[in-house]
């Protein structure tokens, strides 16, 4: 299966800007389906960005984060060609990991 994580990390001088888009339903547990039954909550709880074995950004998410979540942040100290590791875990224990090259 193709990765659920799409990342663009661009180094500009000392600062690397990271944009990530993840495919996930992010069901809040408040929405009903076509039959009128509640769709159980299903959302990403933790999203982590690691550079050089160190966390550079950690997100704790609740169900109020939009479907197919997007996040943008920047950090210092990385160079073009370096690796950035991204991983997430959801409330049902599912997870995904990918590694992006900083361009």
């Amino acid at each position: 299966m193709a990765s659920t994580i799409r990342v663009r990390a661009t180094a500009n001088g000392d600062i690397t800007e990271v944009q990530a888009l993840i495919q996930h339903p992010m069901d809040s547990g408040f929405v009903k389906d076509a039959k009128g039954e509640l769709i159980p909550a299903h959302f990403i709880q933790e999203l982590k960005f690691e550079y050089n074995g160190k966390d550079v950004f950690v997100a704790d998410w609740g169900p109020a984060v939009s479907k197919d979540p997007y996040v943008k942040f920047s950090f210092k100290g990385a160079k073009k060609g370096d690796d950035l590791k991204i991983s997430w875990t959801d409330n049902k224990g599912a997870s995904d990991t990918t590694t992006a090259k900083i361009s």
Binding site: I15, K54, D55, V56, F57, V58, A59, D60, W61, G62, A64, V65, F73, S74, F75, K76, G77
Partner: peptide, 12 residues
């Protein structure tokens, strides 16, 4: 609470 982000040293 919707989202909470940890900002380590070196992150903008």
């Amino acid at each position: 609470l919707a989202a909470s982000y940890k900002i380590p040293d070196g992150t903008v």
